[in-house]
Design a protein around this nucleic acid. Sequence first.
DNA 1: CTAATGACGATTC
DNA 2: CGAATCGCCATTA
Length: 106
Amino acid sequence: MERVLRAVEQVPRGCVVSYGDLAALVGIGPRQVGSIMKAYGGNVTWWRVTNSYGDLPAPLLERARETWAQEGILLKRNGLGCDIRRYRADLDALAASYERAVTDLP
DNA sequence: CTAATGACGATTC
DNA sequence: CGAATCGCCATTA
């Protein structure tokens, strides 16, 4: 759980990753990432985590829109999310900084 | 212990 | 494009 939140914090501004991306990175199932985000995601940059289509559930998208606009993330045609192919963070770089962040723990 | 439950994902029709 | 289906697995009831 701690690891998931740590991973989220490594996603650069103006980028997004999918639940599945984080799941693979941390080594759990995508649904677990979703559960964790629901419960504890409020304290991190949750708006940079979408499903594999770049979408967010309606109520969340509503809250993310402002921030997305600030970070330069534009909405997709259908308005359900962003074009993840364009904004998805570099997964190798993400993995790198994630590893660093978890090993540097006290 | 079993059963239901998801901020999910890939596939199929 | 949308809807249905199945696999997934920690958490909760």
